[in-house]
Amino acid sequence: MSRPAILVDNVSVRFRPYVDRKPTVRRSLARLRHRETTEVNALTDVSFSVTPGEAFGVIGRNGAGKSTLLRVLAGTLRPDDGKAVTNGTTSTLLQLGVGFNPELSGRRNVYLGGLAGGMRKADIESRFDDIVTYAGLEEAIERPVKTYSTGMFSRLAFSVGMALEPEILLLDEILSVGDESFRGKSMQAMRDLLDRSGTIVFVSHSLASVAQFCDRALWLEHGRVKQIGPAEEVVEAYQKAASK
């Protein structure tokens, strides 16, 4: 078997309640004396692996730990226990337009977003026209991004994210980007990525698109793996449980 693109091994993430409250000196002092010991288990003993060329779906209710899992995969959140390894350049589209500054022009934001994602300025320069054409924003590229419609903003952000030519793409609920024709284009871009044996991890509440698009899926419940297997089976089981 080839080397997995993503390997998650017994990952647990615990948050202390101060994540939800603004930390203050008083609470921190209390914490030092171990008075506040309640913990929230965001992820418990999660293990799975994803092979190159695979589209992997993650489903579950709000608060099941889906976004936490993606952050662990993106490497921005270090798990308390266990290990998560990704092999390949990773692009995260967990939220659209990360690193964008709405006051600045579309052109400047292409650079900002690309540099934030780890591209070099020279690479962005050479791909600039493609990025703009792909997003369909030739006319508006010199305008401040705050004047863009939601669809325009999403298209630009998606286009910049794909320009990284990632081997692993982490997506959070953004397939609904843009209008019908752009949605078709973005689906095509992701199929191309899979054909190049890229890997996609895809978190969504849209069960239909997970069943249709993903090979396998993971069902998270209260931070634990409830079921893992072929996407259609997992979605079906999830739907059955939800309708009960």
Partner: peptide, 20 residues
Amino acid sequence: SRREFAWYLAMGNLKARNAS
């Protein structure tokens, strides 16, 4: 290796701050 990012962030903030 991320120096260009730092520079663009700073210049972007400078520009944005006074743009309006």
